[in-house]
Computed example of a mutant assay.
Amino acid sequence: MRLHRTRTAALLLPVLALALAGCSDDDGTAADDATAGAASDTCTPDALETLTAGTLTVGASDPFEPWYVGEPSSGEGFESALVYAVADELGFAEDDVEWTSVTFEQIVSPAIKPFDLAAYQTTITDERRAAVDFSSPYLTTRQGVIVADDGQYAGATTLAALEGAKVGVTASQTSLDAAEAAWGDAVEVVPFNGAGDGMTALTSGTIDAMVMDVDQGVAASTVYFPDTAVIGTLPAVGDPEQLGLVLDKDSALTACVSDAVDTLREDGTLDELRATWLDSDDIADLT
């Protein structure tokens, strides 16, 4: 299996590259076990009912680290490398993978998809499973807290230390529920349309902290907003927050894609990709 492990130089993307990030909702849950168990002889490029015969079309939105380094087709970044690993398991060569740019709304809406699968940090939820299919989860993630290096809360190590702060979240996403569950009324929660808007507010001093997916937060604080840092993660709310590949509802590909993800988990590839591209394992919980 070909995996791309060499990091390219960081590409400074516009702030709005974070606007669709943290693509999660209120009740992250694991994918249904029913998606597993596809017969291996049906999971081949000749047998799979893809949009274009012999081609795997993959949807993604604005690329940003650590999920994509450069263009999605680069093979650099966690999800770009994941897609090529899944494609390889299904028998598609790298040249048989075609990328298409889509919005996050296109990914999670019940409309017919312009892709065979999408890879864009999409949390598995019961609400979304009513509109789309998910593969087996490929990553369990957490919500991180980012503050300015020179701000009042730079040394905070507990939830209580942030009481009274203005905390930014992305509206209608997991960060909102996690922040409210962690602090209740002890902080002022400030919703933003996108994580990039919140990080800009953080660096300008309009808010004191920003909550988002911890791996996204690590990239934001090291690549896009270098005067900020992730100081910890929030306690989990409800079921573990898990990311899955998105497919059209009742797609004939779902079982095969889930089998491919399961194989990558079992053979250690997902752990290898996490170790290569994600840097959040040493970030402690805020107690």
Results as ranks from 00 to 15, higher is better:
Arg128Met: 13
Asp150Arg: 07
Val147Glu: 01
Ala148Cys: 11
Leu139Asp: 03
Asp150Cys: 04
Ala131Leu: 10
Pro114Glu: 15
Asp126His: 07
Thr157Cys: 07
Lys113Glu: 12
Ala131Thr: 08
Leu117Gln: 07
Lys113Ile: 06
Ala161Arg: 05
Gln152Val: 14
Arg129Tyr: 14
Leu162Lys: 10
Leu117Cys: 11
Ala160Phe: 09
Ala130Pro: 06
Thr125Leu: 09
Ala130Cys: 07
Ala111Asn: 09
Leu139Thr: 07
Thr125Arg: 08
Val145Lys: 06
Arg129Gly: 13
Ile112Thr: 12
Ile124Cys: 15
Asp126Gln: 10
Thr125Phe: 03
Ala111Arg: 07
Thr158Val: 12
Ile146Cys: 04
Thr123His: 11
Pro110Glu: 01
Ala160Gly: 09
Ile146Tyr: 07
Ile112Cys: 00
Thr140Ser: 13
Ala131Glu: 15
Asp133Leu: 01
Glu127Thr: 03
Val132Pro: 03
Tyr120Val: 01
Lys113His: 07
Gly151Met: 04
Ala148Lys: 13
Thr125Asp: 11
Leu162Val: 09
Val132Tyr: 04
Tyr120Thr: 01
Ile124Gly: 11
Pro110Arg: 00
Pro110Leu: 02
Ile112Asp: 13
Thr157Glu: 14
Thr140Lys: 05
Val132Arg: 15
Thr123Gln: 15
Ala130Ser: 12
Thr157Gly: 09
Phe134Gln: 11
Asp116Phe: 02
Tyr138Phe: 14
Thr125Cys: 12
Gly144Cys: 11
Thr158Arg: 14
Gln152His: 10
Tyr138Lys: 00
Phe115Tyr: 15
Thr158Lys: 14
Ser136Gln: 09
Ala154Met: 04
Leu159Arg: 08
Val145Gln: 05
Asp133Gly: 03
Thr122Phe: 00
Gln121Val: 08
Leu159Cys: 03
Ala161Met: 07
Ile146Met: 14
Phe115Pro: 08
Leu139Arg: 13
Ala111Tyr: 03
Ala161Gln: 15
Ala111Phe: 05
Thr158Gly: 02
Thr122Ala: 09
Pro114Phe: 15
Gly155Ala: 15
Ile146Asp: 02
Ala154Tyr: 02
Ser136Gly: 08
Asp150Gly: 00
Ile146Val: 12
Val147Thr: 04
Asp149Gly: 13
Ala130Tyr: 10
Thr123Trp: 02
Arg129Lys: 11
Ala130Arg: 15
Asp149His: 11
Ser109Tyr: 06
Arg142Phe: 09
Thr141Cys: 04
Pro137Trp: 00
Arg128Ile: 15
Arg142Ile: 01
Leu117Ile: 08
Phe134Arg: 04
